[in-house]
Structure formats: structure tokens, C-alpha cells
Design a protein around this nucleic acid. Structure first.
Lengths: 335, 335
DNA sequence: ATGAAAGCGCTAACAC
DNA sequence: GTGTTAGCGCTTTCAT
């Protein structure tokens, strides 16, 4: 506090009652203590006059509850500037706003040591935590032991209730879509290090579905952001190989757009020469001109739901181990 | 706290020292109390053994300081899903991470009453606040009275230290660019309700510069998101009027992209038939194919700087009333 | 170099 | 109905 703040005691003194009565009159959460309407009114007036604002910190200390939730999204590997993450954060925002409770979002920032981050989580500043991270994230292991309510989003985590999109269905939809369009030979562009559960699920489900539909799939693990010397794909794109693949399925939209750049640079026509499919269905400012064919996953809704379920958990209720939200095929102009 | 947490007292009892010594050994912020290295070590070990995590709430209550800053971005009118806001939030994230101090970001969510939001700000939960809102935002007026350190970003606010982009220069750059390209008659597409300082500055500076360069400017206030019956622009686009405008300067990128959609729908060729200029320089996933000609404003850097200055203010230092970050022309494919 | 006492502002439990 | 007593877990005097 910067200047001596007005406290409950000041109000009590002014009205001539005890601190208790003021607390009861203003916060209302009190069970036993009852007030007459007249005193309650006088107290409220006095509080108004003095410009009293309850001190949330003191309240939290006493109640052992802050009405604040945390959001952790990996240790510095993600930035909130990514469209995908903006979608998630926006969803959390909506969830918090929706929950009439005075629920705020507390970012757990990266760039500090693991111990610091863990301390932040366990320091009593937050009642619960939303996590977006691969299961192997070191924080997860630490959190498993504690009793802070945690919800995972996007990537399911063992032993932590998770809200995810239907990666399996999405992958199947893509396989069926391509099959219906007559594609026989395709490339699946996966995440280089498959540490994300969602990426693994999508790949496995796609391979399985494609095989079932008699499509031939070559897998191609590429870094998320394209390298200049991306030999295999580039050679496919440039040379007119016999029976070359006719589509590339990317594990997410970012990789899809990245490939689109490639194609553009190499004068490969999309989708005539090569179809490109993504996964996420993120919107871009250019939708009337070009839309990446993709699977639309309701990321904001995933996050919103996670907030809701986290609140339930904090309130002591059990929640489903895994909540799967539906996806749908988004037919764009790239395949 | 969910289960009885380990407290400073537990550690003290185990080692056989007073709570004081533990506090001194672990937090180090203590002035007078000195410890021998041996006791300090024993205390640290014991803390480790017990899995002690300091309770930040208790600490905050005692020190009247939380090391948390807040971010308020209007009362529900903005969503974190917007690319522009993602940029700002990402910048704040970077600023927080950079400040090695255990500095966290506390979102002040909308969707609650003005009083609730104000209470959140003044409840002692945050040491300072970053605000992104028009000067007329009701919260601003309330905040003016209080003594919570506040920094404004993007839109300068009277009597509040602000970090902004060089809107004036940006507008001039656009005017000069268009003039050099031979444009004589253009439209300035402004924000419908000019309550944003940045929007006003851009418009005024553009009108001034354009006039100086003998360009004729018609102003056209449009809602941020296009209405179907946007009569004036549409008629310009569809009819081959004598001496029709050759460029539309939009107050921000969003409006620019929106207009691009219009043009696309009406088969207006950009930039041949009409040049479109934006303001923000937001990146999109399609940059190798289409880039909106715009003024690139370093929004993330604006936010990062604001965090830095806010910390200075919290530490009691004076900061500049207005910090203006440079912008530059971003030549794209639309004009 | 260490400890004891006194709160920070609030609320849960019990008296009256 | 209303007041009193005790803390929540920590840190800042001031004494030893």
C-alpha cells in the first residue's frame, strides 16, 4: 500500500461498532454473525464515506484462498504473441469474466528458474493452475506431488484432468477428406520432437486412418519453423518425380502456413500442384482471400471450459479426467 | 492452502532457532538481523528437507507489497484473442520475465462492475497497473484520485505516464509515401468514435501532412468492423467516378484488412485500382504472399518498456510523462 | 549474532 | 444482534 489505507477498523470506529460487524456487513460471507438492517446500512454508508476498499491480501491470508488462478505455459518456450496462444488466453479471459466470482488470471511467467516458478505456484497466491505444457515439463512432475488443483489444456497430461480438442477425430476427418478427393500418396508433416501429446495423437490417428483408406503416407519430421535446407520436401516440390505426393498434412496451422511460404517461393501452385492441410483452424486477417484447409479446434472454448472445471475442482468437486471438445473440417483454399 | 503448509515456524522448530532467523536466512531482505554462515546453512537445509515454500500472501501483507503488477484493457470491449492485444500481452510477458524480480502479471478482467474492477486495483493485490484504454474509460477517472502507480500504453492518457508509438511520424510517413507515389486524392478511414488518442493523433497528423503535400483527403469514419451497407466506400469502389480516390489510409491494420476483404469481394484490384494502407504492421501467417502496406509500430516493445517504467515508478523513481517509440514504414503489396 | 514481541488487515469461533 | 478473542504466516522494530 502506498498511503495508509482505510481499514475495517477505521470504519468500525466511525460507526461505533466492532470490526466484526463491519466485516459481516460488507463481505457477507460470514455465517454466524447477524446484523440489523439499520446498522448494516450505517456501516455501508460509513465505508462509502471513507472510501474503504477491502484488503484482498489480508482476506486471502485469513481465508487461505485468493480467488486467483494461474496460467503456466511452458518455461519460456512459448510467447503470448503466438495466435494460437492468444486464442487460449482469450478463452481463459472469457472463462474468468463469465465466472461472476472475483476470479482473476495470474500469469506464471517463465524466464525464471524452475524452483522460482514452482514457488510461485505453491506460495498461496493462486487457488489453482491451468497448464499448457508437454507431459515431460519439469514443473509437472513437481506439481504431481502437491495438492494444488491443476487442469491441463490442449495436451492431455497423465493424472491431471485435461480439456483437449478431438485430435483423433480431426486426423480422421482429414484422412477421409483427402481420400474422397482422390489423394493416394501424401506426406505427414509432424513436429520434430514429438513431445506434445496432441501432436502424437494426430499423427497416429492419421496414419491409422490413412492406412485403412489405402493411402500411402510418408512421414516427415520438420522443425516447427522451417529450415532453409528442408531437403526432402523441397525436392518433392521442385522435381517432377513420378508419383510424387499430392498433399502435405501438417500437424498444425503454423507448419502449414510455413509450408505455404515455401511453395510460394518455389512457384509451386497450391492446391493444384500440392494440397496443404493444417490443424487448428486459426483465423487470419485474410480469410476472404485465402484460408488454410484445416481442422478447426475450438481452442478458446477449450480454455474457457478449463477455467470452469478448475473452479469446480477448487470448490472440491470431482471433474472428468479428460474432456474432449468436438472439431470440424474447415475447407479452405489450399486443398 | 489446501493442506497444512509448512511454515517458517516448522523450520525454526526443527533447527532450534527463532522464526526470525529463518526469515533472515531465507529471504535475505532483512536489514539488521545478521546470521552466522553455519546457522544459515543449517536453516537452508532444514527448509529443503521439509519442503518449505514461503507464503507470498503473508509476506505481502506484512510488507505491503506484492511484486505483482496488473493489466487492465478496457471493460470487456477488448479480447485477448485480437492479434494486436496478443502483441501487447506478449510484450508485457517479456518485460516481466526480463525483470529478474519475482514479478508476475495479474490480469484485471472485465465482465464485472466498475466498482469491482476498481476494488481489484485498490485491494493491495497489485503494486502497479498497466492500462490500455481510452482516456474516457470510467476506471481512469477513479484511478486518478488514488495513488496506485499506473502506466498507460498505446493511448496516452492525461496525467498518467504513457508509452506510445510515434503516431505522428507514422502518419507523416504514410502521407509522404503516397505523395511520392503520385497519389492526389485519397480517403482517410478513421475510427467511428474517435475516443482513442492514438486514432485522433494519426488522423490529425495525416490530414496536416497530406494538406501540406497538396493531397486531397476525404475523411470517412467507419466502424472498426465493416458494415454491409458501407455506402460511400463501396460506391467509390464500384463506380468509375471521375477523379476517384486512389488510396485508402486506414487508422489501423484491422480496418485495412477489412477493406481488403471488401475489395476482394467487389473485384477491386489492390493496389492497381486502389491502394490500401494500414497502421500497426502486425504480422500475419501469409507474409510471403501478401503484406499490408502499413506503419510498423513496436507494440511488444511498447508494452515491455511500460513494464520497465512501471517498476521504476513502484520503486519511487520519476519517469517521463510520455515515452514515444519509433515507427517505420512497412512497404507491403497493397500500396 | 540471535530472539521476543508486535503487528500487517481481516475473519472464524465463540461468548454475551 | 453484537463484541471479544485469536490467530492466518510473515517481517520489522528493539532488546539481549
Amino acid at each position: 500500500m502506498r498511503r495508509k489505507a482505510v481499514t475495517i477498523k477505521d470504519v468500525a470506529d466511525l460507526v461505533g461498532v466492532s470490526k466484526m460487524s463491519v466485516s459481516a456487513a460488507l463481505s457477507g460471507t460470514n455465517g454466524s454473525t447477524k446484523l440489523s438492517d439499520s446498522t448494516r446500512e450505517r456501516i455501508k454508508e460509513a465505508a462509502e464515506t471513507l472510501g474503504y476498499t477491502p484488503n484482498a491480501i489480508a482476506r486471502s491470508l485469513r481465508r487461505q484462498k485468493t480467488d486467483v488462478i494461474g496460467f503456466y505455459f511452458g518455461h519460456g518456450q512459448f510467447t503470448a504473441r503466438l495466435p494460437f496462444l492468444a486464442e487460449i488466453i482469450g478463452g481463459i479471459q472469457e472463462g474468468c469474466a463469465q465466472h461472476k466470482q472475483d476470479l482473476l488470471l495470474h500469469f506464471i511467467m517463465g524466464g525464471r528458474s524452475l524452483e522460482d516458478v514452482y514457488s510461485s505456484c505453491m506460495s498461496g497466491q493462486i487457488d489453482g493452475l491451468i497448464v499448457l505444457a508437454p507431459p515431460g515439463d519439469p514443473l509437472i512432475a513437481l506439481l504431481q506431488g502437491g495438492d494444488l488443483p491443476v487442469m491441463a489444456v490442449v495436451d492431455a497430461i497423465q493424472d491431471i484432468p485435461s480439456v483437449v480438442a478431438d485430435d483423433l477425430l480431426g486426423a480422421q476427418l482429414i484422412a477421409e477428406y483427402l481420400h474422397a478427393k482422390g489423394h493416394k500418396k501424401v506426406i505427414y508433416r509432424s513436429l520434430e520432437k514429438l513431445h506434445l501429446v496432441s501432436a502424437v495423437r494426430r499423427r497416429d490417428a492419421f496414419l491409422e486412418a490413412a492406412t485403412r483408406l489405402n493411402m500411402s503416407v510418408e512421414e516427415c519430421e520438420l522443425p516447427q519453423v522451417t529450415l532453409p535446407g528442408d531437403s526432402r520436401i523441397t525436392s518433392w516440390l521442385c522435381n517432377e518425380v513420378e508419383e510424387r505426393p499430392t498433399a502435405v498434412i501438417c500437424w498444425n496451422d503454423e507448419a502449414g502456413y510455413d509450408l505455404l511460404h515455401h511453395c510460394h517461393r518455389h512457384k509451386v501452385k497450391v492446391p493444384e500442384d500440392l494440397a496443404i492441410i493444417g490443424f487448428d483452424g486459426l483465423s487470419t486477417p485474410l480469410e476472404s482471400m485465402l484460408v488454410l484447409t484445416s481442422v478447426r479446434a475450438p481452442w478458446a472454448e477449450v480454455a474457457r471450459t478449463a477455467v470452469e472445471l478448475l473452479c469446480s475442482r477448487i470448490a472440491g468437486k470431482e471433474v472428468a479426467k479428460e474432456t474432449v471438445l468436438p472439431v470440424q473440417m474447415l475447407i479452405g483454399t489450399t486443398g
